[in-house]
């Protein structure tokens, strides 16, 4: 039962990864890609790590720390990238 649940979480995470990363190849604006990347890299990775946590609860301190740092750093990186890219060269971009 728990095994099934953990594989479901990991599967959802990998699906998020593909869904959120594929728009990178298209021709959208940086901010739009940032939205889909936040789905992939923050939420998808959190789902994968949560699945791992269900699989092997013995390593919980490491995995909980990973979830916290993932949420914090990826969100901050999203903000910093949005801020820098929008106030830098808005008009140079096609």
């Amino acid at each position: 039962m728990i095994n099934l649940l953990s594989y479901t979480c990991i599967g959802i995470g990998i699906f998020f990864w593909f869904w959120g990363t594929l728009p990178l190849l298209g021709k959208k604006s940086v901010l739009f890609k940032l939205h889909s990347l936040s789905v992939a890299d923050t939420l998808g990775s959190m789902a994968i790590v949560f699945g791992l946590l269900l699989k092997i609860p013995r390593e919980w301190p490491l995995l909980v720390l990973t979830i916290i740092t993932l949420a914090l750093w990826n969100t901050m990186l999203g903000y910093v990238l949005a801020y820098c890219s929008s106030s830098g060269g808005e008009n140079e971009r096609a």
Partner: peptide, 17 residues
């Protein structure tokens, strides 16, 4: 350059995971 930065941010998270 900003699209490349996005790609590198994605690579760094994915490799760690």
């Amino acid at each position: 350059i900003w699209q490349t930065m996005l790609a590198f941010a994605s690579i760094s998270t994915k490799t760690a995971i």
